[in-house]
Amino acid sequence: MPERKLRILIAKPGLDGHDRGAKVVARALMDAGMEVIYTGLRQTPESIVETAIQEDVDAIGLSILSGAHNHLFKRVIELLKNEGAEDIPIFGGGIVPEEDVSYLKRIGVKRVFGPGANTEDIVSYIKEMTNK
């Protein structure tokens, strides 16, 4: 049987217009053989969860550089629960202070990658995390 293709949603929630990081990551995942659903800027938590369900992704990666990470991650996680889709793992990256990273981990974010994160590390992390 052919190897299972990983499908990953890379989304930018809120009004944050910094999309370089998200694009760099999307490109790196594609180069690693994954299918990346890229939805562009200004997504609401509602649209992210709806997209994740319709696209049946293996994981959701949020990119947030605006400072609104605590609120946005929490909201996406809540909505996933409401939809019975809390089994879809969620991770992310951007500008997130250390103390917030531990908060995010407590509410269920798998991992947060900061500036300068190596895309190879991101790729191997995703492979590991989704390897159920």
Partner: peptide, 28 residues
């Protein structure tokens, strides 16, 4: 991509007005 086997699926970006419409299902 014939080289990596990966893909960036971006058609959805243009269809954002329908993302949360319960009667629209979009699959890339």
């Amino acid at each position: 991509s014939p080289f990596t086997g990966g893909a960036i699926l971006g058609d959805r970006i243009r269809m954002r007005s329908h993302y949360t419409d319960k009667n629209v299902f979009i699959r890339s």
